[in-house]
Simulated scan of single mutants.
Amino acid sequence: MEFAKRLYQRFESLVHELAKFGSIGALAFFLDTGVYNLFLLGFEWGPLTSKVVATTLSATFAYAGNRFWTFRHREQTGLGREYFLFFLLNGIALLFGLLVIGFTKYTLHLHDGLSLNIANFAGVGLGTLFRYWSYKKWVFLEATEPIPVELPEVRQDR
């Protein structure tokens, strides 16, 4: 039991960070899937166009959640830089989804909603692995100085 406790203590910050990343990711996944199906099945847009719209909306949500909650303890290197890198890396992750969906529809000739949703889930899974690694490496950098958990008291002289 002592081994498990020491192991947890060693990886505590990683476990918490992964839990937060997973929570934001789960919400973004439901947003992505809902928007994807709305446009694919509701508006009968093509699967690739539906995926681009869904990813754009869910990535915007994920950026805010990850910046201000998951990785708030990391260095803030400027909104413009982070936002650009975040969406560039999400664009690369989107390619995973588009390749899987495109392969399903245009190579396997599976056009039904279930097959396209399974392809979407597989693409999201591959993209998630890439996003977690790339956000930590390039977008939300390690803090060079400790970031306080709470804001300091503001002294009001009268």
Results as ranks from 00 to 15, higher is better:
Glu153Phe: 10
Asn37His: 09
Thr104His: 01
Ala93Gln: 07
Leu89Phe: 15
Phe103Ile: 11
Thr77Glu: 12
Ile92Phe: 15
Ala93Phe: 10
Phe86Asn: 01
Leu27Ile: 15
Arg81Asn: 08
Ile118Asp: 01
Gly78Met: 07
Leu151Gln: 10
His109Phe: 14
Phe29Ile: 09
Gly78Ser: 07
Leu99Thr: 06
Val53Thr: 05
Leu79Ser: 05
Asn37Ile: 11
Arg131Asp: 01
His73Ala: 15
Tyr106Ile: 00
Gln76Tyr: 12
Thr128Val: 14
Phe43Cys: 07
Thr77Tyr: 02
Leu18Gly: 10
Leu14Phe: 14
Val15Trp: 07
Ala19Met: 12
Pro148Thr: 08
Ala119Asp: 02
Ala59Gly: 12
Ala119Cys: 04
Thr55Cys: 02
Phe130Trp: 15
Gly65Val: 12
His16Trp: 13
Tyr83Trp: 15
Arg81Asp: 09
Gly91Ser: 06
Glu2Phe: 11
Ser115Asn: 12
Leu94Met: 14
Thr107His: 12
Val139Arg: 00
Gly22Ser: 14
Trp138Thr: 03
Gly34Ala: 11
Thr128Gln: 06
Asn37Ala: 09
Asn90Asp: 09
Gly42Gln: 08
Arg10Cys: 12
Val149Gly: 01
Ile147His: 03
Arg67Thr: 08
Leu114Arg: 06
Phe130Gly: 00
Leu40Met: 12
Gly123Leu: 09
Lys20Trp: 13
Gly25Thr: 07
Arg158Ser: 13
Thr49Arg: 02
Lys51Cys: 08
Arg10Gln: 13
Arg72Trp: 05
Phe103Pro: 01
Leu18His: 01
Tyr83Gln: 02
Gly42Ala: 10
Asn117Thr: 14
Tyr106Glu: 15
Leu57Arg: 02
Thr56Lys: 00
Leu114Lys: 03
Arg131Ile: 07
Leu7Phe: 15
Pro146Asp: 08
Glu12Val: 07
Thr107Met: 11
Leu40Ser: 04
Pro148Leu: 10
Glu75Phe: 08
Ala54Phe: 09
Glu145Tyr: 10
Gly102His: 03
Phe68Lys: 06
Pro146Thr: 04
Thr70Arg: 05
Thr33Ala: 15
Ser58Asp: 06
Gly46Arg: 06
Thr77His: 10
Asp32Arg: 02
Ala122Gly: 05
Gly42Lys: 08
Arg74Ser: 09
Val100Asp: 00
Gln9Met: 08
Gln9His: 12
Leu94Asp: 04
Phe71Val: 03
Leu79Arg: 03
Leu95Phe: 10
Leu18Tyr: 05
Leu114Gln: 04
Ile92Ala: 14
Gly91Ala: 06
Leu57Gln: 00
Ser115Pro: 05
Thr128Asn: 04
Asn66Gln: 13
Val53Leu: 12
Gly127Ala: 00
Asn117Asp: 08
Thr60Ala: 15
Gly91Glu: 06
Glu2Cys: 01
Lys20Ile: 05
Thr55Leu: 09
Ala26Pro: 00
Ala143His: 07
Lys51Ala: 15
Leu141Gly: 01
Glu82His: 07
Phe103Leu: 15
Tyr83Gly: 00
Gly97Arg: 04
Phe61Asn: 05
Thr107Ser: 13
Phe96Trp: 14
Thr55Phe: 09
Glu153Ala: 13
Phe140Thr: 04
Leu114Val: 14
Ile147Arg: 13
Asn117Trp: 04
Leu129Val: 15
Val154Arg: 10
Tyr63Arg: 02
Gly123Met: 10
Ile101His: 03
Asp112Lys: 03
